[in-house]
Amino acid sequence: MTEDFITFRNVSKRFGKNVVLDDLCFSVRERQRITLIGPSGSGKTTILRMLMTLMRPDSGLITVGGDQLFPADEQQVARVRRRMTMVFQQYNLFPNMNVLRNITMAPMKVLGVPEDEAVDRARKLLELVGLTAKLSHYPSQLSGGQQQRVAIARALAMQPDVLLLDEVTAALDPELAAEVLDVLRDVADSLDVTMLCVTHAMRFARDISDQVLMFCTGKIIESGPPEQILEAPQHERTQRFLRSVLEEV
């Protein structure tokens, strides 16, 4: 399928004087894996938050699967939202629910999945993220990496068409980050989802993505397949950014 699935047309967003997205245009095809890279404050997370309807653009048009977001009525927004879900930097698991409940609650209450089926699905997902033994643990009893893996399982339990990953390893130390990235590689291999991923983990970006978009001050300054952008960047700003990221590692 080559049709555009997600499109941003002339999308702008500013916070006071600070321009976060500047007349941005780009599109994503179904099942494409896109990685958004760039310095902090270049608007990458804002894009994911807009798709997740956590933030509105000041102007421009966003469509997902033919449905327009902003302006759109509540039903349409809910329809779009149902197709996608997001994993956050800070995991955002519900601390008042155990792991199983964190994963089964939304499928049961939002999608109307029967309890035994939701539990069954949760068990399979926990197997995928390597946490079957932690089923009845509470988030506070898990390490950061484990919490993030549960958050990934929780997101996948919604069987989304689009998975948004917002710096999912940024809050983790390198060892825990590696375990989360391994899980995500498995997810990318085994599931047919469209992925938009904001990350500073460049090797991971190269492994999982079809396309890398380099952002700077609210614009895409360079885009292409990962081997091209990450190994032979043309733009001076991309070169500088990659140098600093690699030095950090």
């Binding site: 997740m52 309807t53 956590l54 809910a78 939202r81 149902r82 879900t85 997001m86 956050f88 800070q90 955002n92 698991l93 519900f94 609650m105 939304a106 209450k109 939002v110 929780r154 997101a155 919604m158 948004l164």
Partner: peptide, 13 residues
């Protein structure tokens, strides 16, 4: 935390 509201939105609650 606002992250909890965000997660609820992301799960379409």
């Amino acid at each position: 935390p606002t992250g909890q509201w965000d997660a609820a939105t992301a799960l379409n609650l």
